[in-house]
Every structure is written in C-alpha cells, then in structure tokens.
C-alpha cells in the first residue's frame, strides 16, 4: 500500500521524513523506495501521481 511520498537528499533523511510524516498508524513495517526504482504497472508511460 502506497501512503505518500517525501523528498529527501539521502536515504537516512528519507527514512526520518517517511516516519515523521506517516506514523499516524501502527505500521507493521514501513519502507521507502526511490522513485527511479518504481515500475509503474497501469500507466507505464505517465509520471506517477506523486510527481517527479
């Protein structure tokens, strides 16, 4: 389940920003994925809704 996105200069801050922005639920796990590692399934030619 994708819950949101963050902009961060490095992986370490990406983890902090993901946690501080999206910690409202008791997540079993939370993962951050770099945008360029995402493979869109439905609209492979469009930019994803979360932007750049």
């Amino acid at each position: 389940m994708h819950v949101g996105s963050v902009n961060a200069p490095n992986d370490e801050l990406a983890k902090v920003y993901a946690w501080t922005a999206y910690d409202e639920e008791k997540w079993v796990e939370m993962c951050v994925v770099r945008r360029n590692e995402i493979i869109p399934v439905l609209n492979p030619d469009n930019k994803p809704i979360w932007g750049n």
Partner: peptide, 12 residues
C-alpha cells in the same frame, strides 16, 4: 530548508 524537514521538526 524543506517541507519534510518542517514536518520532522514539528514531530520531534
């Protein structure tokens, strides 16, 4: 310096 940094500061 960034919106995410604002959120982190507020959360801390």
């Amino acid at each position: 310096p960034a919106l995410e940094a604002c959120i982190a500061a507020c959360s801390m």
